[in-house]
Computed example of a mutant assay.
Amino acid sequence: MKQRLLDRLLLAARVHAVEQLGPRLRLITLTGPSLGGLAWVPGQHVRLQVAAGPSAVDWLVGTLRTYTVWNHLDQTIELIAVDHGDGPGAAWSRTVRAGDQLMLLKPQGSFVTDASAAYHLFAGEETAQVAYGPMLRALSAEARVFARLEVDSPEDRIELTPGQNPNWDLDWDYRHGRSAASAPTLVAAVRRLDLPPEPGVAYLAGEARTIQLIRRHLVDERGWPRRNVRTKPFWTPGRKGLD
Rank of each mutant, 00 (worst) to 15 (best):
L5W: 13
R8N: 11
A12E: 15
A13G: 06
V15Q: 11
H16M: 12
H16G: 09
L21N: 04
R24L: 07
R24Q: 12
L25E: 00
I28W: 00
T31W: 06
G32F: 04
L35S: 06
L38Q: 08
L38F: 10
A39E: 14
Q49A: 12
A51F: 03
A52T: 07
S55D: 13
A56G: 06
L64C: 12
L64A: 08
R65N: 12
W70Q: 02
H72C: 03
I77K: 00
E78V: 02
E78F: 03
H84F: 08
D86L: 11
P88C: 13
A91V: 08
W92F: 13
R94E: 08
V96W: 05
A98Y: 07
T113D: 02
D114A: 07
A115I: 05
A118H: 15
Y119D: 04
Y119Q: 07
H120N: 04
Q129F: 07
A131Q: 10
L136E: 04
E142T: 14
A143H: 00
A143Y: 01
V145M: 00
R148H: 04
L149N: 00
E155N: 13
E159L: 14
T161W: 09
T161H: 13
P162Q: 07
P162G: 08
P162Y: 05
W168L: 05
W172N: 01
D173A: 14
Y174D: 02
R175P: 01
R178N: 11
R178P: 01
A181F: 11
A183G: 06
V187A: 10
A189N: 14
A189G: 09
V190T: 08
R191Y: 05
L193R: 01
P196T: 10
P197W: 02
Y203C: 01
L204D: 03
T210R: 01
E221Y: 03
R226W: 09
R227Q: 15
N228M: 10
N228Y: 07
T231H: 10
T231E: 14
F234A: 03
W235T: 02
G238M: 03
R239Q: 15
G241D: 11
D243N: 14
